[in-house]
């Protein structure tokens, strides 16, 4: 099976703009940044969290603690996957107990990644509040989970794949929608 690129959903500028807006919403909803910790979900969420952090430093002159979370060992579909999921690192800059944790991921789809992320997070401490920021919400939730901050809502079909590309991994910043093709 191959993926055919159908359309570009966001350019680099669109991504920057959305991240900037989400950063402002995070400050607003938390009435400041005093308790906020950004936690990027491996792998692309990690870089998006860093970008939100950089925007916050620029506009609020605050360096928000930023961690990274790997959810591989908490997945509920390990025995169904054919490609073996690689374990990445988890690291928190501080104890998240009593903090406002903003989870950051690239795309929310079924909600199962976030379910796993919540379990992983609770094993690390007891945050006061957990919020969720995603660059793209593509619908089709299978669990009662909703993001607090959304870069862009995109109606999709289940045959489609939304790819968020970040320069650190993919050499380019963009969001594209692809279609699965046989052969």
């Amino acid at each position: 099976m191959t993926l055919r690129e159908k359309a570009k959903l966001m350019s680099e500028t669109d991504m920057e703009r959305a991240i900037r807006r989400m950063a402002h919403e995070i400050v607003e909803m938390n009435k400041g940044l005093e308790k906020v910790v950004l936690v990027g979900i491996q792998r692309r969420g990690v870089f998006l969290a860093q970008r939100i952090r950089d925007v916050l430093r620029q506009f609020e002159q605050v360096r928000v603690p930023t961690g990274e979370l790997d959810i591989t060992l908490y997945r509920d579909d390990l025995t169904l996957l054919h490609d073996h999921p690689v374990v990445h690192s988890t690291s928190m800059p501080l104890d998240i107990t009593g903090r406002h944790v903003v989870l950051v991921d690239d795309v929310i789809y079924t909600g199962r990644t976030i379910r796993a992320a919540l379990d992983a997070l609770m094993d690390l401490g007891r945050p006061d509040i957990v919020q969720l920021a995603v660059l793209v919400d593509r619908g089709h939730r299978e669990l009662p989970i909703a993001p607090n901050f959304v870069g862009k809502n995109v109606p999709t079909s289940r045959d489609e794949v939304v790819e968020v590309r970040v320069s650190e991994i993919d050499g380019i910043n963009e969001v594209v929608i692809c279609e699965r093709q046989e052969g």
Partner: peptide
């Protein structure tokens, strides 16, 4: 490399993961 990520788990207050 995978062992390194497992090694980090051993230092956590809750060491157990459901994998």
């Amino acid at each position: 490399d995978q062992a390194k990520n497992m090694d980090n788990l051993i230092d956590r207050p809750i060491k157990k993961v459901p994998a």
